[in-house]
Write a protein that binds this DNA or RNA. Structure first.
Lengths: 341, 341
DNA sequence: CGCCGAATTGTTAGCGCTAACATTGCGCAC
DNA sequence: GTGCGCAATGTTAGCGCTAACAATTCGGCG
């Protein structure tokens, strides 16, 4: 008996201790906590009181190890510095937290390989499900999901292959802004893009379709820059664009960051917005309403997307398998017309 | 033997399986993975190869249960929608990730009680350490930390009671902006604040000290609003302030959100900034450089704070107890003078 | 009055891993 | 050769919890 006692993590109070204090076995405590209907009300009351009194904190690892359920959801987003994803995160949190699930947040930095690495790393936590941004992942990514039969919901876009997803048609949204600019009488409409993730490219598709249909598509007006998006970049790209194409009469920026930089640069250079140049953004960030002039943009329901995606995932986790029909939720978008167009 | 096999979470490949494939015992696999020097190089190589081949994924719960270490750090921040904390988060991630630690992120919504509840909830994961925003927590909060001897590092501010912390003097920073406005010849300097967390109030202290020293402190110019901060609120508060005090010649906003709203409203109302009214912000968010005129503000090293705090915590975790001396790290701040002052 | 079934509680075993101790093997000094 | 010491690997037990099955209790009914 000279064995050293093991280090205890946590407060050291176990279910067994609580049970002993209550004069019952550990399993009864477990039941009192997790399936109250299987324990006499009086006893349950007593146990809950002792839990409080002894400061018992359940050990999640033990629970998970024994039950093979982690009550944990892995959330993969491309960036922490982009409000878009933070908003979605808040929506997710608002659903998972009350449901007793905890989220593990992985930041993929817009990289497929990092995304895959994160998935591998976080698998150690055996998450019960997965919320991913976008539809395009590394090939091994989907393989792992399939192997483990890990339920996943895809966010921010719409799939046509039956994968459950919650989002909006990036293509349609790109088309909508382009159409808006056409309706305002513009014909030389540029597309300014950075980061170039799948969503940005789909918006580009929408832009192309509309312009082609209107007979004024000019590939020279597509300015694509793989660098991370920023206001500085928006300003710089605007300068470059106007230097090459002074006849340009509208700019569709793939997101509000670029647009805010562009609009500020116009202000600095004395270019009249929208008289001389109309500017459109995407996402409707808070700051979009406070530029001079205020920015016209596409409002996207990020919070709602996150929340709905989380709900959809929980449905899958709780057995309501395929409730039939398409599990793709289109939450749409809204054109916010303001002073810049 | 009629017992049903338990559900397996994960791929089902265990350390034991890998060991068997390699002709060794499970513990050797464990050692090959976690303390390579205790295993012959050739054998280790073979094991690593099998791990890859069989798709073995360690089970973190089991590891944690057996070793009483979770390799997990709990990070508590007041808000996800405030870039300030997201930046700190990124700094934390940049240190913890490479060190093999994972972060659990708790959003306290600026509430002491929610913070306490989150701590309780996340204790179930038995985190090895804790990174908290601010110095003021619920009373029970510190008690729990003490009971469990949970190492913690406090972020964003400086303590004088020996708690390890990484941040800047909010008071000094508030004083610095105020001094700057005084130096620009202003005498009727208002303080516009929202959210009213401890940091905002400390900046207020600095503001008061400077103005009192300069003999032009007027409590009527302190506008404190407990509502969450936003650009809209900044604009509204500016209107209210000027309606009550048309003689006001400078406004120090407790953060850039308010300031951007205020500056935009001035633009809309034709108030000349800075000629008629100087405006100062706080934090130096990206958008601050792109208002018209660009916003003067106090730049705070959020990323560095997060990173340093994480490093400090890791030091504590790895036994280098008190390396003596104050464990308070002052990373300072920097006045960014731009067009608005 | 004994037996049945439902409700309540208990027993046993094991989830996958690692700390602690035990064993084996091997080179080397004498 | 014998024994010593160290390095490499194995054995045992147990972390805290819960699934599955077992036992007990109790009310009701023929």
């Amino acid at each position: 008996m000279s064995r050293k006692p093991r280090l205890r993590s946590g407060s050291g109070v176990t279910m067994h201790d609580v049970g002993q204090a209550a004069g019952v076995s550990a399993i009864t405590v477990s039941r009192a906590l997790h399936s109250p209907e299987r324990v006499t009300p009086a006893l349950r009351e007593k146990i809950l009181q002792l839990v409080e009194q002894l400061g018992y904190v359940p050990n999640r690892s033990a629970r998970q190890l024994a039950s093979a359920r982690s009550h944990t959801v892995l959330v993969l987003i491309p960036s922490l510095s982009n409000t878009v994803f933070i908003d979605a995160l808040a929506g997710i949190e608002s659903v998972l937290q009350p449901a007793g699930y905890q989220m593990l947040i992985g930041n993929t930095h817009y990289s497929d390989s990092e995304e895959l690495a994160l998935l591998r790393a976080y698998l150690q936590h055996s998450p019960d499900g997965l919320l991913v941004t976008g539809l395009q992942q590394a090939e091994a990514f989907s393989r792992i999901l399939a192997e483990r039969q890990l339920p996943a919901v895809y966010m921010m876009d719409l799939s046509d292959d039956g994968r459950p997803c919650v989002g909006l048609s990036q293509e349609a949204a790109g088309a909508a802004m382009t159409r808006h600019l056409l309706q305002r009488g513009r014909r030389r409409i540029a597309y300014l893009a950075a980061q170039l993730d799948e969503r940005v490219l789909k918006r580009l598709q929408g832009y192309r379709q509309e312009l082609t249909a209107a007979g004024c598509h000019d590939p020279a007006l597509e300015w694509l820059n793989p660098a991370p998006s920023s206001m500085q970049l928006g300003a710089d790209m605007l300068d470059a664009l106007l230097a090459a194409h002074p006849d340009c009469d509208a700019v569709f920026c793939c997101n509000d960051d670029l647009a805010i930089g562009a609009i500020a640069r116009c202000q600095q250079r004395g270019i009249a917005v929208p008289a001389q140049l109309a500017i459109g953004g995407f996402n409707d960030l808070q700051a979009a309403a406070w530029t001079t002039p205020p920015l016209s943009t596409i409002a996207t329901p990020r919070f709602a997307i996150g929340a709905a995606a989380a709900r959809l995932l929980l449905q899958q986790l709780h057995g309501q398998q395929d409730s039939g029909g398409s599990r793709c939720l289109d939450l749409g978008f809204q054109l916010q017309q303001r002073g810049s167009t």
